[in-house]
Nucleic acid binder design. Structure first.
Lengths: 206, 206
DNA sequence: TAGATTGTTAATCGATTAACAATC
DNA sequence: TAGATTGTTAATCGATTAACAATC
């Protein structure tokens, strides 16, 4: 018998809660409340309490939540109490930026290997990484048991790359290419596409 | 009397429809249907028809939608039948990647000016752009009548930059910094944050 | 204690889907 | 014509909010 599953829209908010709690902790705070969190994030206090109630009881009447305790719980829930190794495929300007991004650390992720197909790039270095031959993609991902991939190749190559990483065992893809990837249901995909976000906003402009 | 307003969740899907239609057109297709579009995007045909019905009647019974006609309509609705000038603030690795991004063209956007505070960077070139002094931000944005900004500075500086661009007249901000920006309700904000997306996915992994 | 805030229930609100007449 | 597909309605489904007893 399955535990009733948590709505994805709730899951999607948890990383936002975690981000805000991390910031509060950095600012030296020890406690917070659903009201305070809600104001900072821009959603209702009731929604935060409801969301958290799917996973347990983490607060205290009268005093709210211990920030460090709630961070710990959310990290457990989101499975970022460990470090996920990631593969980065495609070293254009964007891949280059991501390879040099310092923000993965302490949030549950690290880049483990970087691939490109360009012979000029293969073998050269980005920070601590040597760019590997895209033809070895599947082999390396399998050997290193990598479950998360970031795809920063062109729209034209993205589906092909996705097929390869899925075959090699990747279970989550962060896709920067402006295409809807087709993957098995067991594989998670999230898209990052500035055009989509910009067009969403210009609807409200005139 | 206001026209009943379209739910934001509907608006958010329109750029995705447009993206898919553009791809279909590139592939040489002339017509499509809600069923076909739905399958490609991964949502129901009924939802696509319902979404579009908020804005008019764009299809024909029996034959579906003319791709070029529907593209035109969606571009009108999203206000990307013109080109929006954008300011880019912050020239780290990510800002550099965005400055060199070719994908804005033909989708309604172009970068008009780029700013940074680092004296080493000010005056140097990225493609056709000269990096300008961040201290001139407000002045230039106002003079050029820029309404869209992309913020690629650190988390610590992001709110400060947001305050400046809003004061200068910006109405839409694409925020790459991992902070919840506080802006007037009349200003649109969309966040792009890979950590948030990755943590959303690892919830489903084990 | 009095005040604050939780977790949860029930009510409200909104979004999605199924179904179908209209019609190309 | 027969088949396909629209736009729309009503029904269903799901998410958010308001309210409150419990209690720190």
């Amino acid at each position: 018998m399955d535990k009733k599953q948590v709505p994805d829209i709730v899951v999607a908010r948890l990383p936002l809660y975690l981000q805000t709690l991390n910031r509060l902790e950095q600012e030296g705070e020890y406690n917070t409340s659903s009201k305070d969190l809600g104001k900072r994030i821009g959603i209702s206090a009731a929604q935060i309490r409801k969301d958290l109630s799917h996973f347990g009881e983490f607060g205290k009447q009268g005093t709210g939540y211990s920030i460090s305790f709630l961070i710990e719980k959310l990290e457990d829930i989101l499975h970022v109490n460990k470090v996920w190794d990631m593969a980065l495929i495609g070293v254009g300007f964007l891949g280059h930026a991501i390879a040099n991004f310092r923000g993965f650390q302490n949030h549950g992720f690290q880049i483990k290997c970087i691939f490109d197909n360009d012979p000029e790039k293969i073998g050269s270095k980005i920070g601590d990484f040597t760019i590997e031959d895209g033809r070895n993609l599947a082999e390396v991902i399998q050997k290193e048991n990598i479950q998360v991939a970031m795809i920063t190749v062109d729209a034209e190559q993205a589906q092909n790359v996705a097929n390869q990483v899925v075959k090699a065992g990747v279970k989550a893809i962060l896709n920067y290419a402006p295409v809807k990837l087709i993957v098995p249901k067991s594989v998670q995909v999230q898209d990052i596409d500035p055009i989509i976000e910009l067009q969403h906003m210009t609807y409200y402009l005139d």
